[in-house]
């Protein structure tokens, strides 16, 4: 792990794209938070993706007589109340969590970013209207809004993704809009107007490349939050549906067996915590590297 002093300057950029990428990767790796975050995330992602190869058992396969086994022996991390291998279930459980985190964030970004850029650049009444609507959506606490949507659409991974994306869209739009407002002040935007560029060109060719840093930072932090919200939904029985393994759901069933074995509860908790922690660290670290000026997101 790199121990260099955290650098607080903007990304130094080189001549070519490749150079810039090299410099970027270097500063990302030499940032302590990024490094810790990546150290946590890399093995988790690899193990999860390779779950079908690595997992010793089918995650839904029950082993009669081996319920709630302790770690060691035949089962690396023990078994659950139905005698299913915890190691395999934790590996597979990561798939739904990561899938949910990435897709719901992606969906929310694909809606929130254009809304934020457009609203911020156009300004005036249109902006006022859009932002009022976003504020309203944000005045329902995020988990409750997600709950409400899932309640109505029915539980399940897909519906959870839709719900979380809906909840995060206004939050992303707000952040993107405020970055847009500051870039909009720059004189090169006025120069573009002076040569008669279209609004679309200005929004997406002039502004967007210049707010890519806060957008990336926001995205990586959001993935962590999305996984957390998704796990909460699963914990409440509204996310991924059994028998598909899922960390949140595993914790909720482990809850009923807390006094018999601690392992059943512990493993999914540790993996879930480590994943969210990894994304949080990565996001904050990226903020240091890419965009030191933007303060910590005040929108939760």
């Amino acid at each position: 792990m790199a121990t260099e002093k955290q650098n607080s300057t903007t990304v130094p950029t080189g001549d070519t794209l490749v150079d810039r990428l090299k410099v970027l990767i270097h500063s990302v790796l030499s940032n302590r938070r990024c490094a810790v975050g990546l150290t946590l995330l890399t093995p988790i992602v690899i193990l999860t993706v390779l779950a079908p190869i690595i997992a010793p058992y089918n995650p839904t396969e029950t082993h009669m007589g081996a319920q709630l086994a302790s770690p060691g022996g035949k089962f690396l991390l023990g078994t659950d109340h139905l005698g299913r291998d915890l190691f395999s279930r934790v590996l597979y459980g990561g798939r739904s969590s990561l899938l949910l985190g990435v897709t719901s964030t992606g969906l929310a970004m694909s809606m929130g970013v254009p809304i934020g850029v457009f609203s911020g650049y156009i300004g005036g009444r249109v902006d006022e209207l859009i932002m009022r609507l976003m504020d309203t959506l944000m005045s329902i606490p995020s988990l409750l809004l997600a709950l409400l949507i899932v309640a109505m659409m029915g539980p399940g991974l897909f519906n959870a993704v839709i719900a979380i994306a809906t909840v995060y869209t206004p939050r992303i739009a707000r952040v993107v809009r405020s970055s847009t407002l500051s870039v909009k002040q720059e004189e090169f935007i006025r120069a573009a107007e002076a040569r008669g560029e279209s609004r679309l060109y200005i929004c997406f060719r002039e502004i967007l490349p210049n707010i890519s840093s806060p957008v990336i930072v926001e995205g990586s932090i959001r993935v962590g939050f999305a996984i957390l919200t998704g796990a909460s939904l699963s914990f409440l029985g509204l996310g991924t549906q059994p028998p598909t393994p899922d960390w949140g759901y595993m914790i909720s069933t482990a809850y009923d067996h807390l006094w018999s074995t601690i392992w059943y509860w512990l493993w999914p908790s540790v993996w879930l915590g480590a994943t969210i922690l990894g994304f949080n660290l990565l996001g904050d670290g990226l903020r240091d590297v890419l965009d030191p000026r933007v303060e910590e997101s005040k929108v939760m």
Binding site: Q185, E186, E187, F188, R190, A191, A194, E206, P209
Partner: peptide, 12 residues
Amino acid sequence: QIVFQNPHSSLN
């Protein structure tokens, strides 16, 4: 056309 004050902000 127009030229602005702040050279650091006038180029993308």
